[in-house]
């Protein structure tokens, strides 16, 4: 097998007549972190489940670690680790038992798993918690244990479905640091998220999904460079909507109004003129920053709510 870890081609999936995945294709090279970004309902989780052979596509194909899915999904899953979106650790077991029992699902001898447990707990920052009951762990600790559980079979590929949703900033940063270590150790990662900073930090390449389609793909920097103006000035205040409708439109190359905030998207050379214009508008506050992935995401998927 070449360095291709996962290939998804022209994938389609419908539920009750509604197409939730509408022709998605992408590939993962060994050692990269690839992100699937999209609003709720964009089809991210369905794509992951299809890659694992846990749901069947209406059309298209998946090759996971060189094996066709779903035909040989079980064999392919031998070398995959999964961190699901919702905690499904075993509440009847201690920390160590969770890992031991999960190892058995991979056909690992208890001896083998037991020899790995100290390193796994060290990696998860759970050393000394072997005998702890699940109910005594915090949300962050449970997430780290889920990550350790996904590594019990020493997988080549990790699938992470919104790995930091619901965690506090400390816990998120710790997870990010651990994922970077895994990448440095040569693992491949497929990640879904709707945290743009997470994607920008971790992903070498990513795809933005909307309504079951990939609407943009590339490295975070390349996407920002290709899809959006490089500079953003956010203008706030009660007067911002009026200002946006009158002067703002003339000042900015592109302007989006969201509530009482006007987002002005500009080329580098237009920033100075807008800022000096705003200096003369004391009723408005402003924030000047470089464009980021969130700007790209909102431009491509729109600002309406998706629930």
């Amino acid at each position: 097998m070449a360095s291709e870890v996962l290939r998804v081609t022209a994938l389609r999936k419908s539920y009750a007549g509604r197409e939730v995945v509408a022709g998605v294709g992408f590939t993962l090279e060994a050692g990269e972190c690839y992100g699937l970004l999209g609003p709720n309902g964009a089809g991210k989780t369905t794509i992951l489940r299809t890659c694992l052979g846990l749901t069947f596509a209406s059309a298209g194909s998946v090759t996971l670690l060189g094996l066709p899915v779903p035909a040989q999904a079980r064999a392919a899953r031998m070398r995959v680790g999964v961190v699901p979106q919702f905690d499904n650790l075993d509440p009847d077991f201690t920390v160590a038992e969770n890992l031991l029992v999960f190892g058995r699902y991979f056909g690992l001898a208890d001896r083998t798993t037991q020899s790995r447990i100290p390193d796994l707990l060290d990696f998860a920052g759970l050393t000394g918690k072997e005998s702890a009951k699940l109910s005594t762990l915090s949300g962050g600790m449970k997430r780290r244990l889920t990550l350790a559980r996904a590594l019990v079979n020493d997988p080549d590929l990790l699938l992470l479905d919104e790995p930091t949703t619901g965690l506090d900033p400390q816990a998120r940063h710790l997870i990010w640091e651990r994922l970077k270590r895994l990448l440095a150790a040569g693992k491949t990662i497929l990640l879904t998220t709707h945290f743009m900073d997470e994607a920008e930090r971790l992903c070498h390449r990513l795809a933005i999904l909307d309504a079951g389609r990939i609407i943009a793909e590339g490295s975070p920097r390349a996407l920002i460079a290709a899809e959006i103006e490089p500079q953003v000035v956010e203008v706030y205040g009660e007067d911002a909507p009026r200002w946006a409708q009158s002067e703002g439109k003339a000042q900015a190359r592109r302007l989006e109004l969201s509530g009482e905030t006007a987002f002005c998207y500009l080329q580098d050379d237009a920033v100075a003129a807008l800022l000096s214009h705003l200096d003369r508008q004391p009723q408005l506050r402003r924030l000047h920053r470089p464009a980021n992935l969130e700007d790209v995401f909102l431009k491509l998927t729109g600002r309406e709510l998706r629930d």
Binding site: L54, A75, N88
Partner: peptide, 14 residues
């Protein structure tokens, strides 16, 4: 409720 089966199905268990 516990989604234990979901966890198991992510491993090479059908």
């Amino acid at each position: 409720v516990q989604k234990t089966w979901d966890a198991i199905l992510n491993a090479p268990v059908s």
